[in-house]
Write a protein that binds this DNA or RNA. Structure first.
Lengths: 187, 187
DNA sequence: TTTCTAAAAATGAACGTTCATTCATTTTTT
DNA sequence: AAAAAATGAATGAACGTTCATTTTTAGAAA
């Protein structure tokens, strides 16, 4: 039994269930079936623990999003695939979504990783630059393009998880993809 | 001197500066130039205080966003105006943005208002329904439309405030508006 | 205007609780 | 039996809230 992983899983579960605000070491230990002191054998402290979890999730996310990505494919196809991968990642692991969101919006909590926040999106930058070169994606600043991809994705996932919409309904995802593509595509 | 307002302003400033995680009553009091006990003359406690601030900002936001809105105007014009109003509101008062974001992503922190989260967007729903009826806005679920409006706006503001883009640069806003409109408009 | 006084507002030290972290001791592994 | 891993009670700091006391306010009386 890997206690380090158990502890990380425990944090993920608790942050999702009760938020950062109520996260405390005793509960983390209990949920992971270890003693409170054990956590300090694997992590320097609470901050280190949370930063480690963040890094882990970002890595998993990047890896998952890039599945099936190939430079040879049309940009539009890669775009659909990546968006699909991203949504699938978060819908099947909503705890990850909740954690990343809360972490991102906690200024000065764990400054160390704050520059990595947008690192989450590195695969997307690659696709944008190719698309612009080929003339299929609008020639506007990357940051605006980014907001047109990342923003809707974030919100639609949030709405889905809050049961305000259902992305699994037939055609829903496709409609979303088409609309998102319209925002960044050359008319 | 209105102490109640001073306390609310103090919370806003501190949440923006150090996040919810480090927010404590002693600092709120110090920043507002009142004694710790004074806060309890105006608010039941910490949660009540934060909920009150949230409600205040949501009200101000809704009011500001609707400025210039008129049913008679073309939907596209209302859309641009509202997006412009929303961005202006947050860019001129970034503390409000940071606060709302952090509040929204704090599950189980202050459940009371959680259903009001999307209330923030009530003016937008109105516009969408008219646009669909007139055939200028895609006939897709409101929730998807919402994600295509709210999402990019949120992300672009975040990027601007993080100095990753500059919405005040000539043409930047216009490009963003055009792209956002493309996402929701009938082709 | 000045003085008095009762109510309202404000104060901040004190209290009880919670929490992250430590470390002497115990358990498990090799 | 020595080393490594794990434990959890103990510690002290931090925090939200309370309330006995002080300060301010406002109106009446002189």
């Amino acid at each position: 039994m890997d206690k380090k992983q158990a502890i990380l899983k425990s944090v993920l579960k608790l942050v999702n269930r009760e938020g950062f605000y109520h996260l405390n070491m005793k509960n983390i230990a209990k949920e992971a079936n270890v003693a409170a002191g054990t956590i300090y054998l694997y992590f320097k402290g609470k901050e280190d623990l949370i930063n480690a979890l963040y890094s882990m999730i970002v890595n998993e996310f990047n890896q998952h999003v890039l599945q099936g990505y190939e430079d040879e494919k049309p940009v539009k196809e890669n775009f659909y695939d990546m968006l699909n991968n991203a949504i699938e990642f978060y819908l099947t692991q909503p705890d990850n979504f909740s954690f990343i969101e809360q972490y991102t919006y906690a200024p000065f909590l764990f400054k160390e990783n704050q520059n990595d926040n947008f690192l989450l999106l590195s695969p997307i930058y690659k696709m944008m630059s190719v698309g612009k070169k080929e003339g299929v994606i609008r020639n506007i600043p990357d940051s605006i393009l980014l907001s047109l991809i990342h923003g809707p994705m974030n919100t639609i996932i949030k709405l889905h998880l809050a049961h305000k919409t259902d992305l699994n309904k037939r055609g829903a995802k496709q409609k979303f993809f088409d609309a998102a593509w319209s925002a960044i595509a050359v008319v």
